[in-house]
Amino acid sequence: MTQLVLEQLLNGLQFGLMLFLIASGLTLVFGIMDMINLSHGSLYMGGAYLGAAAAQASGSFVIGLCAAMLGMAVIGIVLELLLLRRLYLRDHLAQVLATFALILIANDLVRMIWGPQPLMLNPPAALAGPVELFGFSYPAYRLLIIAIGLAVALLLYLLVSHTRVGMWVRAGAANRTMAECMGVDVRWLFTGLFALGAALAAAAGTLLGPLLAVQVGMGENILILAFVVIVIGGIGSIRGALVGALLVGVVDTLGRALLPTLLRAVSAPEVAGHLGPALASIMIYLLMAAILFWRPQGLFPARA
């Protein structure tokens, strides 16, 4: 039992860190520009497809990952310059409509290019097997994801907390108008941030590709989880996104794995099998609703 819990904790950590990659870009866009971007999930999906296609073509997972990040960063810049830039000053409804339209476009574009069948993406051959860890075997590839996720979190922390650019970002998130008055070029900053967010989402898409299916609609499920993460953490806060992502990742994974077992003790097995995963999902939304109710600014408010 402890081994199962430990293994699922690692899985939760791994999923949480990937959620963090997606949520970090989203929370900055949301926090600084007060912009609801529903198409962030499409960047994640686009990254997964680009990564899978590039990995298949080149035979190298690393090349696939780099191609996905670079490609989505470029697409992110183009999107920001052509479309999103016009939406910052519009109301939330216009942003919802435009970015929902982007979801529709992205889903059909992916189907046009790669067809309706899910793509296969294999982990790097060297990491396909398990490794021995604290007395049980754990997939090496998942360990790599955890390592990459932790590295990115550290880099983002250094970038945001210890560089001049990071200072501008924090200033923009705390009070955008004031930051502009103090000479921060928020427009330029935001194009860069959006590209970074797109690249991180693409990285998450490619890294999760071998574990989840690379398919149309994969962005919609994860997008809402990413919103939950940033609302829990506090909109605009990177630290909040990390804490929120780990919380959601661990609760979701542990709940899915352990609740059916626990429920089986009190109800019929087939009922427990259905109820367990759903309860895990409900718990996450309950957590978000509770935070919104008692502490709407989130655990780590970014706005002063």
Binding site: F30, D34, V231, I235, I282, M288, A289
Partner: peptide, 26 residues
């Protein structure tokens, strides 16, 4: 009790809870 984007998010949260509740019912 919430306003603006928080209202958007909390209504979304409740709707998703209902979605998962019903999907979980055999």
């Amino acid at each position: 009790r919430t306003r603006g984007v928080y209202f958007i998010m909390i209504t979304l949260a409740f709707a998703q809870m209902i979605y998962y509740s019903i999907v979980s019912l055999q």
